[in-house]
């Protein structure tokens, strides 16, 4: 809530990320407001995942400034564990903890970080599982779930810390087509509730319907951004036009 004064959840300025001599992000600028849903699209290898991972410092930015929730995370003195509590992240491959049950996956962080005592945490975790439609799977192990179910548990797990922002990195790319809808429905519900979200996705339908803004990335640059109607129906940048032609005709 620290960002309340100017209503900005994420402010990225001149973000550069190198892997060795390979410049992957070439000076990005992006601001995301409270309650805003931003979808990022673009060809594979353009730096979308890297950008997302710079927001919670799974990757160290090479230069530039990243301010999330009012914390300057490019400053090494910032306590990242604290900041990460406020940023939920959902991965392409779910990354559920296979040694824990579904319920334990969701409760792990609140209990370890003393956000709630066991009773309260259990209650909340069950409520979250109910929310994503998996209340009856609470005591199952991740290995026994389908991909779509795993991803919904992963979303519940990220929500358990009451984050202000949710990051999604291609949350449906690893799913069988018939599972995609359930996961997208959960995400739509979240958006409706006013969650600030940054979603890297290839689901153009979802982006059109849910996004407040769509960002097109290519070659480590943000090439174009705008509201969904404008970007999908009247793309300005030839790279955007080319990309959309390929994706929508596929």
């Amino acid at each position: 809530m620290n960002a309340a004064e100017n209503n900005n959840r994420v402010v990225v300025t001149d973000l550069v990320k190198n892997y060795g001599s390979n410049e992957v992000l070439k000076g990005l600028n992006l601001t995301v407001k409270n309650n805003e849903v931003v979808c990022m699209i673009g060809p594979s290898g353009s730096g979308k995942s890297t950008f997302l991972r710079c927001l919670n410092k799974l990757e160290d930015p090479t230069s530039g400034s990243v301010i999330v929730d009012g914390y300057d995370i490019s400053d090494n003195k910032t306590n990242m564990n604290k900041v990460r509590e406020g940023i939920g992240m959902v991965f392409q491959h779910f990354n559920l903890f296979p040694n824990l049950t579904v319920l334990e996956n969701v409760m792990l962080a609140p209990i370890e970080l003393k956000k709630a005592d066991k009773e309260v945490a259990t209650k909340e975790a069950r409520a979250l599982l109910d929310e994503v439609g998996l209340a009856e799977k609470a005591d199952a192990y991740p290995a026994s779930l389908s991909g779509g179910q795993e991803q919904r548990v992963a979303i519940a797990r990220a929500l358990a810390m009451h984050p202000d922002i949710m990051l999604f990195d291609e949350p449906t790319s690893a799913l069988d087509p018939e599972m995609v809808g359930d996961v997208l429905d959960v995400m739509k519900k979240l958006a409706k509730q006013g969650m600030t979200m940054i979603v890297v996705t290839h689901e153009m339908g979802f982006a059109k319907e849910v996004a407040d803004r769509v960002v097109f990335m290519a070659d480590g640059h943000i090439m174009e951004e705008g509201d969904p109607q404008q970007l999908f129906d009247h793309p300005q940048n030839p790279r955007t036009q080319d990309f959309l032609r390929k994706v929508l005709n596929a």
Binding site: L58, F91, A109
Partner: peptide, 19 residues
């Protein structure tokens, strides 16, 4: 991905390692 998922929840390194 296991370490990344644990850290992204805000768990410190030691806790992520142990749990």
């Amino acid at each position: 991905g296991q370490m990344e998922a644990a850290r992204s929840l805000g768990l410190p390194y030691g806790k992520a390692m142990r749990r």
